[in-house]
Design a protein around this nucleic acid. Sequence first.
DNA 1: TCTGGGGTCCTAGGACCC
DNA 2: TCTGGGGTCCTAGGACCC
Length: 428
Amino acid sequence: MNSRIFALVDCNNFYVSCERVFNPKLENKPTVVLSNNDGCVIARSQEVKDLGVTMGAPIFKLKELVEREKINVYSANFPLYGDMSHRVMATISEFVPDVEIYSIDEAFLDLTNLRVPDLTKFCIKLRKTIYKWTGIPVSIGVAPTKTLAKAANKLAKKQFRDIGVFNFFEHLGNEEEFLKLIPVGDLWGVGRAYTKFLNQHNINNAFELKSLDIGYVKQVMTVAGERLVMELNGEPCYLLEKNPKLKKNIAFTRSFGEYQTKLDQVEEAVAYFSRKIGEKLRKEKELAQFLQVFILTNFHNKNLPQYHNSVIIKLERPTNNSITLIKEALRGLKYIFKDGYQYKKAGVISLGLIPESHRQYDFFCDPNDEKYLQKDLMATLDKINFEVNSDSVKFAAEGVSRKWWMNQTKKSQRYTTNWKELPKAIAE
DNA sequence: TCTGGGGTCCTAGGACCC
DNA sequence: TCTGGGGTCCTAGGACCC
């Protein structure tokens, strides 16, 4: 029997909590953070959840509610959230050696070999420390599998909100009671489609799913469903993944602030996206073998003529050279761009990524000839753009007008990542 | 008027081969 | 009317995650 102890640490309303750290007046006030382009709600404070606002709700539909309830609205400030995430993860790592950073606001911990007298007390203390050191409130779930740790975290957030910790090991023997409190749709791996299906078959909570015949579950929910039921029964299928896997795709896509109709404007956007792809690839030390470019009109607006298209380009040699990426992406764009449409969004995706160190040398190419990557030039650009300002050095193809740039009218400052925007302490 | 962005994994079905 | 039987590889689409 190879039993393990997993914990999931999840930041509460993460983006809203980040805004609150630097603007304490938002504490206990209904607050939301919007997606890029100020389109829809991507983070809600508890007060806003209680008002019934759903994740992803378009903000323009909530105008009245925002005014009536005096909801504080913020544009997304990802550099700030990324930096705060870093601080939370660093704090956790001070106390636990086995940490998997699962997303910007979540970490799995393996506590199996952590010799502490009382797991629950340890987690309560960890939670308090994270809050003290970073200002971010978190919830912690503890259980014998990752899926159950996720479920425990839901309980910690709802039924056990005052302590913020739920430890399944304290309730061995009567898990049933707690699993019945968790709707199937709240489980890790059960999305909209499966929730609908399961509900139609009268499977409504985690206990009912756990009790199903595993062969049946595999048949209707494939292997992911099979693993899910095993995990609910306390058999770990997923272990801690400490070393982040290399990415297989890297994308940069954006909606435009206003419709774009002209090729040259879309070209500027695509050139910018391509440079960003190059930067990301070099940061990950990967090379792309293919590049995909796509453009879309606004599919929400049924009154406008619709068009969407994409093209995949095989790169002559695997590369992360921004200059090559821009050139190839623009070639692709010309191929799919059609006049007469109002474009709302475009994107560039690099595919077939391979590690720089595993580059398959071209048969005809001298193995020492990596000139085409222009490593020194790219390293210099990166040094300036990463250390000074991400847009210090651009390429001519990106243009300067940026007519496509997104709308972000309610952005907080970059309190932690830009010297000019550090919070000021004002004596009153 | 106004609806995000970035990922992963799995499967079915077609093309192709012997 | 009957119309082989495997394999493998690739891709599109769907499901999920945050």
